[in-house]
């Protein structure tokens, strides 16, 4: 709905352009979300209720990938430290729980505030640089956050810490039930999808997209990119922090391993292989990535080598068409 007739008219003029998040992407996204919605009863019918747990994990990573897509796909910022925000969110849960605050909403609020602040400070410094500098400096800030949490011996340092129980909602242990928790995570994903689609179609999103496509042009009509890119970076950080809160509750365990740079790399793989700058692609990418991981790790303990090879081959031999190939494979009509 938020897509306008203008964009779809442009789509019609050039149907080959994959980047425009047109009606196709919207329908693809709705189909994906609908499939998620019917998954729990389907899993019960198939006699495999554990599927819901795996699906919860997929949904949470889809939120994280969605947030990265705003930075990477719309903001043209190759951020290699995005997993840090997952960590901020996860540690917000365990730190507040230790202080006796178990409420999911309060924890989410703290996670969003903490992640946004970290994004604001590190983003403001990182955005002074360009190109490979930006990639390396976001990577380094991610590592800085990682080492910060490693040093928190009160919360288990390197080993992390197990949660006593999941967070409470309205004072009740509502999300102890896996299916309820799944639907809450799914609701967050759906809300994030709608919110980000709205944002990228707004005035702000237009400036962001314009800057991605042609930075100098945008400056020549009077837009200084810094503030817009930084704002996108902060929004994405906050949303990813929220995903971290959910992730801690899903695993009932928190450790610095949530926020390694390899995890940041995996998030990039999800977004790029799913199709950057479409939002739907990020969700499809998270699904594809985690399903592939699940399948491969069931086949061989050395699944990383197969996974790495798939990534390398896709980059080398599907030049410019990775997104297209993957959305054909996973995204269906996306």
């Amino acid at each position: 709905m938020s897509e306008t007739t203008l964009t779809s008219a442009a789509d019609a003029a050039s149907p080959a352009r994959p980047r425009l998040a047109g009606r196709g992407a919207l329908i693809g996204g709705i189909v994906l979300l609908a499939l998620f919605a019917v998954l729990p009863p389907a899993a019960t019918a198939m006699g495999d209720p554990f599927l819901v747990v795996t699906a919860t994990r997929i949904v949470i990573f889809a939120i994280a990938a969605l947030s990265l897509d705003l930075v990477l796909g719309y903001g043209a910022m190759v951020s290699f430290g995005h997993a840090a925000f997952l960590g901020f969110g996860a540690y917000a849960v365990v730190i507040l729980a230790a202080a006796g605050i178990d409420d999911l909403l309060l924890q989410s609020l703290a996670a969003i505030a903490g992640s946004a602040l970290f994004a604001l400070v590190t983003g403001a410094i990182s955005l002074r640089t360009k190109g490979v500098y930006f990639i390396m400096i976001t990577l380094a800030f991610g590592q800085m956050a990682y080492f910060f949490f490693v040093s928190l011996s009160a919360f288990g340092g390197d080993d992390g810490r197990t949660l006593q129980h999941r967070s409470t909602l309205f004072g009740a242990p509502l999300i102890e039930n896996d299916v309820t928790f799944y639907y809450i995570a799914l609701a967050v994903l759906a809300a994030a999808f709608v919110l980000l689609r709205t944002v990228v179609a707004s005035r702000f999103g237009r400036v962001l997209r314009g800057t991605r496509d042609n930075r100098v042009r945008m400056q020549a009509i009077g837009f200084a990119p810094f503030g817009y890119q930084l704002t996108a970076y902060v929004i994405a950080g906050a949303l990813c922090g929220l995903a971290g809160v959910l992730l801690a509750n899903q695993t009932e365990f928190v450790s610095p391993a949530f926020m390694t740079w390899q995890r940041s790399g995996e998030l990039i793989v999800m977004v790029v292989l799913g199709g950057m700058g479409t939002l739907t692609g990020a969700i499809a990418g998270a699904v594809g990535f985690l399903v592939l991981e699940e399948v491969l790790s069931g086949l061989t303990e050395h699944w990383h080598i197969v996974f790495g090879a798939i990534i390398v081959l896709l980059v080398l031999y599907t030049r410019g068409g990775i997104a297209g190939l993957f959305s054909r494979l996973f995204g269906g009509r996306a």
Binding site: G265, G308, A309
Partner: peptide
């Protein structure tokens, strides 16, 4: 040699994949 004229993002992806391969190898 096939990555020189690609954009940074593709280089990041391919070399990230390569890390997975070599560490596991």
């Amino acid at each position: 040699s096939q990555l020189y004229d690609r954009d940074h993002l593709e280089q990041v992806l391919a070399t990230f994949g390569l890390i997975l391969i070599l560490n596991e190898g």
